[in-house]
Structures are given as structure tokens and as C-alpha cells.
Design a protein around this nucleic acid. Sequence first.
RNA 1: GGUCCCAUCGUCUAGCGGUCUAGGAUACUGCCCUCUCACGGCAGAGACACGGGUUCGAGUCCCGUUGGGACUACCA
Length: 466
Amino acid sequence: MATQVRTRFSPSPTGALHLGGAHTALFNWLFARHHGGVFILRIEDTDMERSRAHFVEEILEALLWLGLDWDEGPYFQSQRLAIYDDFIHRLLKAGAAYCCDCDPQELEARRQAALARGDKPRYDGRCRERGLPLGPKTAVRFKTPQTGITFWHDQIKGHIAFENQELDDLVIRRADGIPTYNFAVVVDDITMRVSHVIRGDDHISNTPRQILIYQALGEEPPLFAHMPLMLGKDRTKLSKRHGALPVLAYRDRGILPQALTNYLARLGWSHGDQEIFSREELIRYFSLEHVGKAPGIHDDDKLLWLNSHYLKETPPEELGRLLLPFLAKEGIHTDDAVKAARVAATLNKRAKTLMEMAQAARFYYLDPWPYDEEAARKHLTPGALPVLREARERLAAGVELSEEGLTRLLKDLARDLGVKVVEVAQPLRVALTGKAASPSLTELIPILGREETIRRLDFALRHLGA
RNA sequence: GGUCCCAUCGUCUAGCGGUCUAGGAUACUGCCCUCUCACGGCAGAGACACGGGUUCGAGUCCCGUUGGGACUACCA
């Protein structure tokens, strides 16, 4: 009988969830969902100094926004201290760990000295055989075997091996009683029965240490899969300075969650030539075998392309609803979802984000003046007076505000005035939208309405001194 | 410095020894469509890091070089 697939995502609340974190969360989630397994959320908040409660809230919010729901948790390491202590004592009793009262500052000084000498900075094991009791000022170190090789078959990278002598006796419990990362992770993954540890390959060098702890505990290690890191444009680990924003910043920018998950899924993973994946397809096709080994560089352009794809695919009614909060940010406070849907339908092919869409939608709600300077200079000239006047008259006379009616109006106007269609369209466009580029007049005028259209034409006429 | 990981168009990638004069996507350029801008359609340019092997045959396997990255804490 195959054992149940159980994966976990374990962020530390020392900052917002960023793209890299979302990437590994997604892969864990997809793997669990693909296998009908369990996805666990665990908050690694043992760093009391840097952990903040509000980051926990933000991380959960971001995961939920992305649609990455968890089946168990969130567990908090800070609430599991008694469990870690049990395992510490197991190790102590077995002689696989020992207490150490070396002064941290001294240790740091020795580290620096070794570095300066060009030596490998490693703990010299001076407390190893001292048999110190566990006291209030003692840390606990793991007794790393000094010979032999620790290896595993990585589900993504293949066979990886480390010589044990490269490793030193790491602290697994700090003097303040809090376990360190490498130890807490192992205890958690054991007790939560995690079957697959899928994480960034910056954790590869932690893996042999963790495997050694499993062995000392007499436990079977889970399967490891180290996925390639996401790098910034300068090819270093992705961070704020690459413009890699927190996940929620993408939401606030008007990126759709489907676009972001699609983007993240295709970074480091592929399914033939397919680029667009529904959530169901992602779950159906995802597998570790098709995760690549090479790191990927974050490319905002590709994200934007996917976002515009999903913007085009989203039904206008939904798009209108999504647009409302972005309109508000433009100072347009409306709850008219019907109008917003009509507006969105004219803009969904012209914007890459909801934020852009809201900016482009301003003229539907606000007076288009003052006009864009260059647009007005070019198109709102005295020569345009007849166009504006005639258009105003015919609109007032009751030209039908339909696609066909307005198309005919533009053509007739051009013919009757002896100019090209573009020469009637552009002045009208600037008069109505304030800009030289906009959705088609035949679709924007019906939304503006007859009265408002005429009002704007009158203003333009007066602007030209008519 | 040490250890480990990685290496196909600028970027994301397909490729699991012959079907590769290397495919798709994005970005870029041009043309078409067109009331503008987009969208869409078509076309173009653009890569197997280098050197050795193995093999009848290597982008694909092995070794080395170079390059890049990660880690190197009583952070996670």
C-alpha cells in the first residue's frame, strides 16, 4: 500500500510572502493535490527576534488569495516547544547530542579568525566529551559523525552526497531553550508524517545534517526534492531589490491570482509546449519529473503577458466587479457594477493589469479635460470645428447609439466633409476622452451616453472658441 | 576560501543518442487588419558556454575547464 502523500509549506514570519516563497508553496500544493494528498501549513517562528504576528496574517492572506488552501495547520513551532524538548532528551540519552557552554561571542571570534586564516569555520567540538548537564546557559549540539558519507536520492536533482567530515556539530537547541531550524524541521516533519519535503535548493546543504538527525533518532527520512531557486535579473537570489514584490503587492497592482500561479508553475516546470494552464490542468499534469534543475530568472514581462491573457478571458461582469476597488484608488467611488462591466469590456484587451485598466477608465467617469496636450494640439485644431459641430448636431438629432449607427455616423461624416475617417475620429476621440488613444468610439460613446457625449462636444467647441 | 548545486535563443522552456539545417512562449522588429491604441493574424531575427572523450552517430552519456548560484550562524 502506498503511503499517503503529505507535503508542507513552512514559511517563517519574518517578512511578507514573496515570489520565491509562493513558488515553493505552489509546488508543494500542486504535488499534494495531484496525488490526492495532504498539504500542511507550518509557521516557523522560532526566531523570536524577527518574527512578527502581522506577517503571519499577511502570509495566510496571500496563500488564500493565490488559492493555495491547506488541509492541516497552521501549526506554530513556538507552540511545540515541549515536543522538541522530548526529542532533545531522546538524543541526549542516546548520546547523539551533548551540552555546550561555549560563549557565543568567543565562538564568533574563532569563526572570524578561521575565516581570516582561510580555514573552514567549524565548531571544534571542544564540549563534545565534557558531559555537561543541561542547564540554563547551555546549548545542545548534535554529535555529527566525523566519518562516512551522507547521501540521498533527490527527487529533482538526483544523487547528492556529502562527506560527514565537512559537517560540524551544529547547535540544535539554543541556550534559551528554543530549538534551531535544522532540528525543529526534522521533529516537525517526523511528527507531521511529511512524506515529501519540497523546498528551494538553497536548503541542499542543510539536508545531510537533517538526515543525520533522522538517523540518530532512528527515523526514516522523507523524500527530498530541491527545486531550483528563482533568481533576480542580476542572477542572484530573488529579493526586494529585484523588484520582486510581496505576493500581495501583485494583487494590489491588479495581477490576477490565476495569472500569478500559472506564471509560477511554468517557472521551473513544464508540460511540453503548453503555456496556459487552468488550475485543474496544473493539478492533473504536475509532477516532479518535469521540474528542471536550473534556476530561473523572474521575468515581469511574461507575468504581464499571462495577466493580460486572463484579463481577456475573464467575463466582463466579473472583471467589472474586480475593477471597482481599483477605480476607487483612482478616486472614482462607484458601486455601479453594471457600468463597470461595460467599461471593462472595452478595456480588457488594452490593459495588462487591473490598475492600468482603472487608469484607462478614468475618462468614463471623470471630465476628460484638461486634454492631453499633445493630443489636443494635434487633433483639436480649428480645422476640426466642422467635425465636432456636425457630430454634435447629428448626435443631438438622434443618431442611433449602436455599433452600426455610430460606424455609419463616422463614415457619413467623413464622406460629407470630404475627409478621411481618421480625421473625424481623432478630434472626436480627444474631445470625448482627452487622449489620442482610447477604445473604439463606437463602443465608448454608448457607455458615455448621448447627453454626456454632447456635453463633452460642447465643451470642446467652446475650448476651440466656437 | 571550502562544500554543494547548475549550464539550450535576452527571458521561461521543449529535447529523456539518430525524427535537431534544435521546437514553443515571451520580449523585440516588420507587414496585415484597423477610427486611435490595443487585440488578433503572418513573417523575421535570436541558443545547444568551451575542450576532451564514449559511440557508427551527442544538445542529449562521461571527464575537465570556464561561468553562474546557494550554503558556510545559538537565522530560517
